[in-house]
């Protein structure tokens, strides 16, 4: 579902910053693939290239069979993207937001789909309030519903639980587990190791723009005791 091969991103500057330097990995259908790294390791840049918010300077990436360079709109049509900065339109209500994004995504019945998501995520009670007036937890539910409005086969989640309280974060993690059960490929970027242990099947550890390890969570735990220890050992040894 997600195939990344030698992806490169260089930010201009004096000197230029090679934020992503030949990253390669693959995430499969029905799998939660963790992308782990410290702040500034290159996680977000990689994900932003995969959702076509940035264009790569080298390498290739395909999402659901679509090349991020040559078919960016098809890629965006296949991906539900959620990040800590993925805001909502504050003056639209959740219902308006879902319907309009459904229309943007050109789905057959945007109104019906919106109602379906409103019911699924328990948004009904505040579906007609403006998003700007919702609590963080409510907003997160709407964001998730918005990311799923076109029923994407791929979910790309960039540190999605940052800033959420425990209960909301718990609900979110359950959503990710459900997404895996539904057969979606989930690329999950985080530095919260407990989430990795709970959710991820395989992980890639990125450090200074390069993949320094790619393994299963089970193997990482078997070798180091915990994901956290494995992560620290890998990064320190890189």
């Amino acid at each position: 579902m997600i195939e990344v091969d030698a992806l490169v991103k260089v930010y201009p500057g004096h000197p230029p910053v090679r934020a992503v330097d030949g990253v390669s990995f693959e995430a499969r259908r029905g799998e939660v693939f963790g992308l782990l790294g410290a702040n500034g390791a290159g996680k977000t840049t990689t994900l932003r290239m995969l959702v076509t918010l940035l264009s790569p300077d080298g390498g290739t990436a395909r999402v659901n069979g679509h090349d991020v360079r040559t078919a960016p709109e098809a890629v965006r049509g296949s991906v539900g993207y959620l990040s800590v900065t993925t805001g909502l339109y504050e003056r639209l209500t959740p219902r308006e937001m879902l319907v309009s994004f459904g229309r943007m995504q050109q789905i057959a019945d945007p109104v019906g789909r919106a109602e379906q998501l409103i019911a699924r995520f328990g948004i009904g009670a505040f579906a007609d309030q403006r998003c700007g007036r919702l609590s963080t937890g409510m907003k997160q539910k709407v964001s998730i519903a918005r990311a799923l409005v076109h029923d994407p086969p791929v979910l790309i989640l960039d540190e999605p639980t940052v800033g959420l309280d425990v209960l909301v974060a718990q609900t979110f993690l359950e959503f990710v587990e459900t997404a895996r059960e539904e057969g979606r490929a989930v690329l999950y970027s985080t530095h919260i190791m407990s989430e990795v242990e709970r959710l991820c099947d395989r992980v890639a550890i990125i450090h200074e723009g390069r993949i320094v390890a790619a393994t299963s969570v089970a193997a990482l735990v078997a070798e180091h005791g915990t994901v956290e220890k494995g992560f620290v050992a890998t990064v320190n040894g890189a």
Binding site: T52, G87, Q105, R146
Partner: peptide, 14 residues
């Protein structure tokens, strides 16, 4: 400023 920019940019429209 509000950060909803990615929401728009991720929509599959030109």
């Amino acid at each position: 400023e509000r950060g909803s920019i990615e929401t728009t940019l991720c929509a599959p429209i030109p």
